[in-house]
């Protein structure tokens, strides 16, 4: 439900914004007919814009996923050990004295 709901909220917010835009254009058209000066958009438009801001903000924060920690190593996946420095690997170690037994390589 989560992601779909968030996307739905976002879409609803965008539609509300579009509705506010259309309402503003119609309102200004009305004003022209009534021969009045435009001073302030109607209360309905202001309310719609404010609501769509909240809804779009909700969707923009929710849809991409949860925030990552600022400290990249903290929390769950912290760095626990270094990779072996394989470029400087040395074969002359004490394990050489007791080599383990393996199957013979049968390819060439």
């Amino acid at each position: 439900m989560g992601r779909r709901f968030d996307v739905g909220v976002g879409v609803f917010g965008a539609l509300l914004l579009a509705n506010a835009a259309v309402s503003t254009v119609l309102y200004r058209g009305d004003l022209k007919i009534r021969d009045e000066e435009f001073t302030f958009p109607s209360a309905q438009v202001v309310f719609e814009v404010a609501l769509s801001l909240v809804l779009c903000l909700w969707a923009a924060l929710k849809i991409p996923g949860s925030f990552l920690p600022i400290l990249s190593d903290a929390k769950e996946n912290r760095v626990t050990m270094f990779p072996a420095n394989l470029d400087f690997m040395v074969f002359n170690h004490r394990g050489k004295l007791f080599p383990p037994k393996f199957v013979e390589a049968e390819f060439s």
Partner: peptide, 19 residues
């Protein structure tokens, strides 16, 4: 090949390198 060299299994390592 590198793992075999590390375990001193030189014959097997050589075969990998030859391949």
């Amino acid at each position: 090949a590198i793992a075999c060299m590390d375990c001193h299994a030189l014959d097997s390592a050589k075969k990998c390198i030859n391949a």
